[in-house]
């Protein structure tokens, strides 16, 4: 069977045993992303000190790509500022579209093969949509506009199809 580079052991293992799943009791910021095409949903809870994320958990109902992406995002978010996460999210979105720039996104590089599966890009960006919502207002000077500026959620794909 052709397994495809997208489904590396790292992705499957992370989806099966996520390290950052669950709810955060003392969350100061929460956000949610849903994909109406398939019913997948990611909820993110954050604790922040100043503009830095001090704790993050996610509750994800979705495919392996979505769960692994959410968990890796949560792993990378701790200790970073809202602005840094905004930048990382945009670089991630750019990599998913083009397949390039993998060296700039840390372990999220495992999702680079997604650029060949346009209909699945949304699965990887859904956690970032939730994070963006949680961070609205936390990015200096971009209270509500931050959502539109992010590359990751603006051009959600429509590949799942609604026919048939």
């Amino acid at each position: 069977m052709e397994r495809d580079t997208l489904y590396q052991r790292q992705v499957i293992d992370r989806a099966r045993t996520p390290a950052h799943a669950g709810s955060l009791d003392d969350a100061t910021h929460v956000g949610e992303g849903t994909n109406p095409m398939c019913g997948d949903r990611v909820r993110v809870g954050l604790s922040m000190t100043g503009d830095r994320v001090t704790a993050i958990r996610h509750e994800t109902r979705g495919c392996a790509i979505c769960i692994a992406s959410a968990d890796m995002m949560a792993g990378l978010a701790g200790g970073r500022s809202a602005l840094e996460l905004d930048t990382l999210g945009r670089l991630f979105g750019e990599m998913l579209r083009t397949g390039e720039g993998a060296e700039q996104v840390g372990e999220l590089e495992v999702f680079a093969p997604l650029h060949r599966h346009r209909s699945r890009i949304r699965c990887a960006t859904l956690p970032w949509t939730a994070l963006t919502e949680a961070l609205v207002g936390a990015v200096d000077g971009t209270p509500d506009g931050s959502k539109d500026r992010r590359g990751v959620d603006a051009s959600a794909t429509r590949g799942d199809g609604r026919h048939g």
Partner: peptide
């Protein structure tokens, strides 16, 4: 997840619907 099933089947030339 059905989407994972569909993508992996697709890599093997098999087209199904998921959703």
């Amino acid at each position: 997840h059905p989407h994972d099933i569909a993508t992996l089947l697709d890599r093997n030339g098999i087209a199904i619907r998921a959703g």
